[in-house]
Write a protein that binds this DNA or RNA. Structure first.
Length: 973
RNA sequence: GGGCGUAUAGCUCAGUGGUAGAGCACUAUGUUGACAUCGUAGGGGUCGCAAGUUCAAUCCUUGCUACGCCCACCA
């Protein structure tokens, strides 16, 4: 036997890097298994800006456990890995770095800035992938991906173009959630509502033209939490059934400050119960009012806007905002408007009120509803197939309770705003040319110049969505060539600097049409939604690079990935088998993967979706930098080893519950690793080494048969738990087998055999079995604790292959009931004896004599077969099958036997009596309870027969035990 | 307002229609050439409250209480 001699204490740091490098450089994370059944997981790509936090540790540990398990089971296991470009997050990081140098993004061109981001990525982008390696994650790094790799960009563009052509992506002018700090639109999901203390201001709006309410008032009171938006008010709404206001519907209000005359309209939105029952309507700055405005016939294009992109006051289209308010920040404007109205005597009262306030989840700024043109995905249409897939079980959500949340969101899904006013990201593949409009008077199509190329006005441009600029040009050519006549006023043309279009239009060959590309980029989640298939090489059918799509298409930026070009990889690994993610990204990512995957692949992205909770701080609080209660997983790895941290994560992961951080428990699993280490050391020093076979060796001794059976039972538990994704149950099964069965009993029971105390007849067999069992432990534990198990695998002897690619156990034997009974008898004897000694204050090490008159043949055989163990563990001299000599003695029960251990002069008879009486009381109580149940005719009639049988058996056992104890007491006199 | 989850030993959590388990902590102790990051023994719970279903409820049903999370336009 070779291998290496183990140190006394397990030192994780000494082996982790060594094995990880070995696995990776030897290609063991994805051994070639062309004939094996594929098994695929894609890793939620962490932000390239990120570093490993405790949530990643949980998420990736669970995935690694599954992928290592499936790899050991012989599957062609692929764990796809990569990072996400994380648009907003990454741009913010780089901008913050510039700020630290008194610099800013706008000092650079877009191209220059993006280059800086790439530089940053090259420098720091590897942090998290290095950290994932430290955790032991066995991903396929040879195919590492980045969501801005050229092939990924190709996929993103194709998806955008196809969805556009199918009418599932469109441009629309509506209110968006605008982040005035980041100056971009964000989606509904990126808005967090927080409760903020604010006010409810009641203002008097004067009625115009001497109109009065029925009660004689010359004004109408409106209440608002946002006084500043009154500068863009376009109506006052009242409920049509509200008697107070019925008479003034259709009349006008003359707004203070602006003097704008706006109508009083009837709308169901106005709640007579709330405030005064009259509501100011600002369609351009409030989601409700937008709808009210539309119902009142105001077109989005006509809605007044009073803010710029930073939410500072700008003049409205009607020019009515007082000049001294222009340029004020929205919160300053709020104060000022209140002051002005108060000074005019129009402030009726102010209420304190808790306001639901929207915040951007990235920038932390208060979100402003702002009227812009943005790109929207028709999520409602795309959501239908995934819902059906969950309904009919093609996607299984684990735990099932999340289904309801999934459906609730999908059923009420809103159009998804996917355009972002950022520089870092996938630029939208849309190009703009002049709009052509029918001039109704002339009956001619004419280009509309006025608004172009300024602003976001959808109706002033013609959109060409295409895979490439050339393709867009071609589309534009085809489009404009339909028009026979092109007139236009040269003066206007010149003014807007777009003479080139005229020249182009009138040129012979129609070449070189200038189009402007959409400035915006796509929501990060738009691209990560393609992760399950774009990482596998989709789309195969599009042209290879270069395709000149964007400034990010620099080959130097791309991570080298070996894409297969024939589609085999995609065919083999899509659908993925499982997705593991935190429930916090169910909507952001999981649902969108399901939508895009089903739309473009026609099949579910994964067969199962496992959602886990959050890792919380020890006190149950959410971890956050601001609270300062963040636990660094790398620190835990340094202190206890990656194996301990991983085992902790697995053991604590029960479905549907958050994981609470408990460092003591991590420490406990480090101790567990040390325990295993020392058990292996014991084996090693006793000539036990690597097993030669996967199947269990032949065993004739009960102890060996028993432990083989225990392996089989543990394996069954483990497989069941893994099938159900019960990580806690799986971890506990192997933990208790190793510690409670293998270390506490098996090793102790074989010590006499190995030392020759039992005559040496089972030496070789026991060494073979012990070696085999240890091997099974290493394999079964490997998914949870890959480092220590690989080290021990190697240390225990020569191996044909590494543990990571070993074979999952298949004992091929049934549990031997006889052997199990025999060993459990021994365990009971030893345990009961130890308990009795402790309770009677007898030194644990004291060697005692023992008598057992008239043993049953079975018991006698057990005793004779296990003299070594009884001698060593029970510290009893050979049990004599004869009545004990008279005198004080203690009575030890084991199975049907009552062993008498004389303790002349040592024992405190009263103490032994008390001990037996206590035990007797317990037995009698149990027996009585069972007897009562059995005497109840209803129980015997109605209970399941098995339950009745069990009650009878239990009663018999307890009654016998009570009888034995009574006899023992009698012996004591 | 809607939805979901959780309440079991001092702490963190499993669990089952037949009166409860783990780890840590605690108490006592240290004998056998793997291990003190250990061994041995032990104490500790009317399984949130109430009603119902059942022969039997910690487990199923309903209500209540407490805590947490998600979604939602109440100005």
């Amino acid at each position: 036997m070779t291998g290496t001699t183990l140190d006394k204490t397990f030192d994780p740091a000494a082996i982790e890097a060594k094995w990880y490098d070995h696995w990776e450089t030897q290609g063991l994370f994805r051994p070639a298994r062309p004939d094996a059944q594929p098994f695929t997981i894609v890793n939620p790509p962490p932000n390239v800006t990120g570093s490993l936090h405790i949530g990643h540790a949980l998420d990736n540990t669970l995935q690694d456990i599954v992928i290592r398990y499936e790899r050991l089971r012989g599957k062609d296991a692929l764990w796809v890995v990569g990072t996400d470009h994380a648009g907003i997050a990454t741009q913010m990081v780089v901008e913050r770095q510039l700020e630290a140098k008194q610099d800013k993004r706008t000092n650079y061109t877009r191209e220059q800035f993006i280059d800086k981001v790439w530089e940053w990525k090259a420098e720091s982008g590897g942090t998290i992938t290095r950290q994932l390696r430290r955790l032991g994650c066995s991903m396929d790094w040879s195919r590492e991906q980045f969501t801005m790799d050229p092939h990924f960009t190709r996929a993103v563009v194709k998806v955008f173009v196809d969805l556009y052509n199918q009418g599932l992506i469109y441009r629309d002018k509506r209110l968006v959630n605008w982040d005035p700090k980041l100056k971009t639109a964000i989606s509904d999901l990126e808005v967090e509502t927080r409760e903020i203390k604010g006010h409810f201001w009641h203002f008097r709006y004067p009625l115009a033209d001497g109109v009065k309410l029925d009660n004689g008032a010359d004004h109408i009171v409106v209440a608002t939490t946002r006084p500043e938006t009154m500068l863009a008010d376009m109506a006052v709404a009242v409920n049509g059934d509200d008697p107070r206001y019925k008479s003034v519907i259709g009349k006008q209000v003359k707004l203070p400050l602006t003097g704008r005359l706006v109508p009083i309209i009837a709308d169901e939105h106005a709640d007579p119960e709330l405030g005064s029952g009259a509501v100011k309507i600002t369609p351009g700055h409030d989601f409700n009012d937008f709808e009210v405005g539309k119902r009142a016939g105001i077109k989005p294009a006509e809605m007044l806007n009073m803010f710029d992109a930073e939410a500072k006051v700008v003049q409205t289209a009607d020019g009515l905002i007082p000049v001294d308010l222009a340029g004020l920040d929205r919160f300053d404007a709020r104060k000022r408007v209140v002051e002005l109205l108060e000074s005019e005597g129009l402030l009726e009262r102010v209420e304190d009120r808790v306001i639901q306030t929207p915040y951007g989840d990235r920038g932390g700024a208060v979100i402003e509803p702002w009227l812009t043109d943005q790109w929207y995905v028709d999520a409602r249409t795309l959501a239908q197939p995934p819902m059906q897939a969950v309904r009919d079980g093609r996607i299984e959500i684990v735990p099932k309770t999340w289904e309801k949340t999934f459906f609730n969101w999908m059923e009420n899904i809103q159009p998804w705003c996917v355009s972002r006013q950022l520089w870092w990201g996938h630029r939208i593949p849309a190009w703009y040319g002049p709009a052509m409009k029918m001039n109704e008077e002339l009956g001619e199509l004419r280009p509309v110049y006025i608004a172009w190329p300024h602003g976001f006005s959808a109706d002033s441009k013609t959109i060409f969505v295409a895979n490439t600029f050339e393709e867009a040009q071609q589309k534009a050519n085809n489009f404009y060539s339909q028009f026979q006549y092109f007139g236009g006023n040269p003066k206007i043309v010149e003014k807007i600097d777009h003479i080139s279009f005229m020249e182009w239009f009138h040129s012979e060959n129609k070449e070189g049409l200038a189009l402007t590309r959409d400035e915006d980029v796509l929501d990060t989640w738009f691209s990560s939604a393609l992760w399950p298939f774009a990482t596998l090489g989709w789309p195969q059918d599009s042209a290879p690079p270069p395709f000149g799509l964007s400034e990010v298409e620099n080959p130097a930026h791309g991570v080298s990935t070996s894409l297969d070009t024939n589609g085999e990889l995609l065919k083999r690994h899509y659908p993925n088998d499982l997705l593991i993610s935190g429930f916090d990204i169910l909507f952001f990512w999981d649902a969108r993967m399901a939508m895009q995957g089903m739309h473009f692949m026609g099949e579910v992205p994964w067969k199962r979706l496992y959602l886990h909770g959050l890792v919380r701080a020890a006190d149950g609080q959410k971890m956050s930098k601001s609270k300062g209660n963040v636990v660094d997983p790398l620190g835990l790895i340094d202190k206890y080893g990656a194996d301990a941290l991983r085992f902790f994560m697995a053991a604590m992961e029960s479905q549907g519950r958050d994981v609470k951080m408990d460092e003591k428990r991590v420490e406990g699993y480090r101790n567990f690793a040390t325990k295993l280490w020392n058990a292996a050391r014991f084996c090693q020093t006793n000539g036990i080494g690597a097993s030669q076979s996967v199947a269990a060796p032949a065993a004739t001794s009960a102890v060996n048969q028993w432990i083989i059976g225990e392996v089989a039972e543990t394996l069954a538990e483990l497989d069941k738990a893994m099938a159900e994704l019960r990580f806690d149950a799986a971890a506990n099964a192997i933990y208790h087998f190793v510690w409670d069965r293998f270390c506490d009993w098996y090793i102790e029971l074989i010590k006499p055999v190995l030392s020759g105390a039992e005559g040496g007849s089972f030496d070789d067999e026991t060494r073979a079995v012990a070696g085999w069992v240890l091997d099974q432990i290493l394999v079964m534990l490997h998914p949870f604790m890959p480092f220590i198990t690989e080290e021990l695998w190697s240390a225990m002897g020569d191996r044909p292959h590494e543990l990571i690619v070993a074979q999952w156990p298949a004992p091929g034997v049934a549990v031997n009931r006889e052997a199990k009974r025999e060993v459990e008898w021994l365990i009971a004897l030893i345990g009961n004896l130890r308990t009795a000694k402790a309770e009677l204050g007898i030194a644990p090490g004291a060697r005692l004599a023992a008598w057992l008159p008239d043993p049953s043949p079975a018991t006698r055989a057990i005793i004779e077969r296990n003299t070594g163990a009884i001698d060593r563990l029970a510290r009893l001299d050979a049990i004599r099958f004869a009545p004990a000599p008279a005198g004080a003695a203690m009575q030890i029960g084991a199975g049907d036997a009552n062993i008498v251990v004389p303790l002349e002069g040592v024992i405190d008879i009263a103490a032994e009596k008390a001990r037996l009486e206590k035990a007797l009381a317990v037995s009698q109580k149990e027996a009585k309870s069972l007897e009562g149940r059995l005497n109840n005719p209803a129980f015997v009639e109605k209970a399941r027969p098995e339950a009745v049988d069990k009650a009878r058996a239990d009663f018999a056992a307890h009654a016998a035990e009570a009888e034995r104890l009574t006899a023992a007491l009698a012996r004591l006199g």
